[in-house]
Each structure stands twice: as C-alpha cells, then as structure tokens.
C-alpha cells in the first residue's frame, strides 16, 4: 500500500512522516515519531490515556487518523516542560501526589490543560467534568482533582 505523507507541528517542531493510510495519530506519535507520552490504554476511545491537544482542542489520538492532522498544531505532555522547567500542572501533580503508576497521567494533564487554557479558575465541578473522560486505576481521582485546582490557584497567583 502506498505511503501517505503527513506534516504537522508537534510541541513547536515541524514533523513530517510517511505513514500507512489509516494509521492513528497515537501510533504515528509513539512508533513513528517517538513521542511516547500519549499512552495506548483501550485503543477505542474509552479511557482517555491517549489524549492530546490538536489546534487547542482535546482529542483522543487513538481515534484520530494521522492523515487528518496535516497542518495541525499538536501538543502532548512531553512538550509542556520548557528547558527542564516543569509546567505548573506537572508541578501540581507532583505536589499533590496525583500519580501512582503514571499511565493515566499524560492524558489527565492534557485534559486539565485544555480546561485551564479555556477557564483559568474552574470550579471543582468543572474540573470533575473536564476529567470525566479519563480513567485512573490508582489514585481514586481526588488527588488529581486537587492537582488541577492547585495549578489553577498557582496560575491566578502568578497573574495577580
């Protein structure tokens, strides 16, 4: 089968790959480009572990065909830190002990980032709603909810 060219911006860098038509973005990111921060949990859109941000919107990379991402701007969790300095959300996840096995963490952080980008001071209910598409086995969710609320507070203190 003929390969299909695909080109997009990933965490600020231009990426170009030849892929098989029908390749998911998750597969292209992990196995072609080598960004393993999106995780393959269920591969059918029910766990949220593969969440990435495409043109500012939260998307499930396991249900997104890579060839539909031509020209898109894609952010993954591995692109959040700058020069070794962690993103406030990553710090908040550490500070509230919101990660155990870590498999859900990148997807959770993506979901939280889209929420805070649109709504810097969300209510608890809004945080719960934003995380409701992501499954976690270890934490019982409360530490993750607290992490997002912490990060929101840290943002507003920096802005003030």
């Amino acid at each position: 089968m003929a390969k299909v060219p695909v080109q997009f911006t990933l965490n600020g860098s231009e990426k170009a790959e030849f892929i098989d038509s029908g390749t998911t973005l998750l597969h292209a990111l992990r196995d072609k480009i080598g960004d393993t921060s999106p995780k393959g949990g269920c591969h059918q859109g029910t766990c949220g572990a593969c969440s990435v941000i495409i043109d500012g919107e939260l998307r499930l990379s396991c249900l997104t065909l890579a060839e539909t991402c031509n020209g898109a701007v894609i952010t993954t969790t591995s692109g959040l830190s700058e020069g070794g300095v962690l993103h406030p959300l990553q710090h908040a996840f550490l500070d509230t002990f919101a990660t155990q096995c870590g498999f859900c963490t990148p997807g959770m952080i993506m979901a939280a980032k889209v929420l805070l980008d649109h709504k810097p001071n969300p209510s608890r209910d809004e945080v719960v709603e934003a995380l409701s598409g992501n499954i976690c086995r270890c934490t019982g969710y409360e530490p993750i909810i607290q992490a997002v609320l912490h990060a929101a507070r840290a943002n507003s203190q920096n802005a003030a």
């Binding site: 269920c42 719960v128 709603e129 499954i135 019982g140 969710y141």
Partner: peptide, 17 residues
C-alpha cells in the same frame, strides 16, 4: 467488554473520604 461497560466510579462519583 470495555471501559464503557466495566463500571467504576468516576471523578464525579466520589464519596467524601
């Protein structure tokens, strides 16, 4: 057969703990 049918409490179903 999948996470839609295998039920677990989500972040909106938490008891005060």
């Amino acid at each position: 057969t999948d996470f839609n049918q295998y039920l677990m409490p989500g972040p909106g179903d938490l008891a005060e703990t």
